[in-house]
Computed example of a mutant assay.
Amino acid sequence: MPDPRQARDNLPDTSAKRLVGLSLLFICLSGLGIWAIYLQVPDTSLTFDFRLVSWQTLLAVAGLLGTYYLSDALRLYYTLKALDQQIALKEVFRLVFVNIFFSNITPMATGGGVAQIWYLRRHGVRLGTATAATTIRTILAVIFIFGLTPIFLLTLDHLNNQTIISRVGGLLAVMIIAYLSFFAILLLRTRLLILPISAVLRRAHSLGLLKEARHRHWQYKVRREMLRFSHSFSVYMRGSKRNVLLSILSTFVFLLSLFSFPALLIFALGYDVDYLVTIGLLVVTTFVMYFAPTPGASGISEGLFGSFFSTILGANHLVLVTIGWRVLTIYLGMVVGLLVMQRELSRKGLS
């Protein structure tokens, strides 16, 4: 097991003031996104539709939530097993909520990756292997989303009249290529990344930002963990075909359940749902969210969702479904994640 003091050194900044500040920023930006949707339909008063809380809807939502969270845990669990890492599923399940919390209070989900690696290290997984596992899990989802986005952009009539898509269509294509190229280098030519990282450390040392001993330590550590990362990916590719296949299948189920929440809510409100269209609109929305600079893509995701689904839903229902979508896929998980994180810190004696 890793040294608890070392685990503490890698702990994300969890000071109360910082977490409260980031959470408030997330809430404010999300509120602004929903308010922007409401302003598009100023003549409509917002009223709650109780069909969203009928027992049939709640039962369906509970089943979809269970599938969503379980498949999210399983995609990392089987990735770790393919890397010959044994960790209890219940621990990975807790990590799902910790990741949701940190991913949505930090810009571009940067804190989510740090929190996952920190958590896995505390449960006996080496840094390079933990980094490889979380990166592979992310890449599996990216391949699905980035591969499907161009298809839906070209085939969905609902996106033809979207001004934002027509203006940045070329940029989206460049971003897809750049993003996939970076991950290809990260996985297939990891050693190429050692040189620029090493150069940054040397520059920091020359500027006096790193003392000599610290500089040597980080040069060694970067090389060691990058090589471990490269080796871990090779282990994954040569690992149990069953575990590799299950990690891919779990990722597919996770994404399908994630993209199904709006369809479920729209169906509950009595609309004739074109399931494939709702899936396509969510795929494109999620793709754009990858590049949103705000915490958890707050504000941007709500505004984009409202714009895409405005041709499907009535004005009042558009706001309700937007809120419901974010509550079920993000807000609920964030609350649970905060509780799990605090319990984890207390249980390990680091709070």
Rank of each mutant, 00 (worst) to 15 (best):
S234G: 12
A268P: 06
F291L: 10
D274I: 02
T278I: 00
K241D: 08
L258F: 06
L282E: 13
M334L: 08
S301W: 07
M289D: 15
A268T: 12
V321D: 01
I300D: 07
V321Y: 01
T329K: 10
S298Y: 03
D272Y: 06
I312C: 14
V284T: 13
F229Y: 14
L282F: 10
R242F: 00
T329S: 14
H317V: 13
L281A: 02
V235C: 07
S257D: 03
S240W: 02
F259P: 07
T311M: 14
L269R: 00
L249K: 07
D274T: 03
L332M: 15
S230A: 12
S234V: 05
M334E: 06
H231N: 01
V244S: 11
L249S: 11
F254I: 03
S250G: 06
G280A: 11
T329N: 14
P295I: 03
L304F: 13
A268K: 10
E302Q: 14
G303L: 05
S250T: 02
G296F: 00
L269M: 00
F267L: 03
V288M: 12
L265E: 06
L258W: 04
T251K: 08
A297H: 04
S240F: 03
V244I: 08
L332C: 14
F252A: 01
L264D: 02
I312W: 15
S307F: 14
F287D: 13
L256T: 15
A297C: 09
T294F: 05
S240L: 01
Y271H: 07
T322A: 09
I266V: 12
F233N: 06
A297T: 09
F309W: 01
I300N: 13
M334K: 10
A297R: 02
L328S: 09
L265Q: 03
V288E: 11
S310R: 06
L265A: 08
L227A: 12
M289S: 15
L328F: 08
L332T: 15
L258P: 01
T278P: 01
G270L: 03
V244D: 10
V235H: 13
P262Q: 04
V273T: 09
L276A: 11
S247Q: 05
L256I: 14
G280W: 07
G303A: 10
V277G: 02
V335S: 11
S232A: 15
N243K: 03
S301R: 09
D274E: 11
L269G: 00
A263S: 02
F305Y: 14
T286V: 05
V327G: 09
L269N: 00
G299R: 05
